[in-house]
Design a protein around this nucleic acid. Structure first.
Length: 262
DNA sequence: ATGGTAGACCTTCTA
């Protein structure tokens, strides 16, 4: 049974409940993974999404910051979470579908502005978070798994608007790309978006600070969909909903989609 | 090299 999955950093699910409903109504993904819900779960707007058929949710929330949720039309069970880098933040949650597939939803720390852990503790925390992902994948050897989320790293030259200009900008520095690559290798994760669209520039985020985001098009691909090799061949139909960046009062990220025939 | 915008929340932190 094929299912379509989407991932979206929503930057406050309470402020943008209407945008999430618009996406669910128009695109009909079976599963939607959200990051930066920025709310405790007792204030999460579950009723509106349930009315659209998304009756299942596995989530972790906190007040004001971070928070991840997996909304689904298909039955889900909670598969736990991990406090990566011991930050005490709600940045990871996992859920299991009835077909045995495990979905990991990640919100990797942005890492601050200065790409040096001696001057910027947030950058060190970001590297530590990703190093722990590597260690966990090495120990656990994930199978039948999908990993999605805002990984806050654009790994390839064609994942950013200007590779050379961004080499010292957090999200595209060589040390971050190296860390993310080690985590990906440790779990043998296949980048499904690039499996489907191997050529050309792809972006999922455009800064709020850049005026005229569409014409300037200074984007980065920070949001990812990965799968383990045992199911990677089932992945297809990837796309990035660039239009969502132009919706009224948008998130700075747009939804990324993939379908799995499983 | 700098500053630019957005969201949550209690005045500043985070992105």
């Amino acid at each position: 049974m094929p299912f379509t999955l989407a991932t979206w950093n929503i930057n406050s699910v309470r402020l943008r409940e209407g945008l999430v409903s618009r996406l669910l109504s128009s695109e009909l993904p079976d599963v939607l993974c959200l990051q930066e819900i920025k709310t405790p779960l007792d204030k999460f707007p579950t009723e509106g999404f349930a009315a659209l058929g998304y009756r299942y949710m596995v989530a972790r929330g906190q007040k004001g910051y971070n928070g991840v949720a997996i909304l689904s039309k298909l039955p889900l069970t909670d598969a736990g979470d991990r406090d990566y880098a011991a930050l005490g933040h709600a940045r990871h949650v996992a859920a299991r579908l009835e077909n045995g597939v495990t979905i990991h939803n990640f919100y990797v720390p942005a890492g601050g502005d200065i790409p040096d852990r001696a001057q910027n503790v947030k950058f060190g925390q970001k590297l530590d978070f990703i190093a722990e992902m590597r260690d966990v994948f090495h120990a656990d050897r994930p199978e039948k798994a999908i990993l999605v989320g805002d990984l806050n790293i654009a790994p390839r030259e064609d994942d950013v608007w200007n590779h050379k200009a961004l080499l010292k900008i957090v999200s595209h520095t060589p040390v971050e790309v190296e860390h993310l690559g080690a985590a990906q290798d440790a779990g043998k994760w296949v980048d499904i978006t690039r499996q489907d669209m191997p050529e050309g520039r792809l972006y999922s985020w455009w800064s709020y600070r850049s005026p005229d985001w569409n014409a300037a098009d200074k984007g980065r691909r920070l949001d990812h969909i990965w799968a383990t090799p045992d199911i990677s061949n089932a992945g297809h139909g990837s796309r990035i909903l660039r239009d969502a960046r132009g919706w009224e009062q948008p998130s700075d990220h747009v939804p990324v989609f993939a379908t799995f025939d499983l």
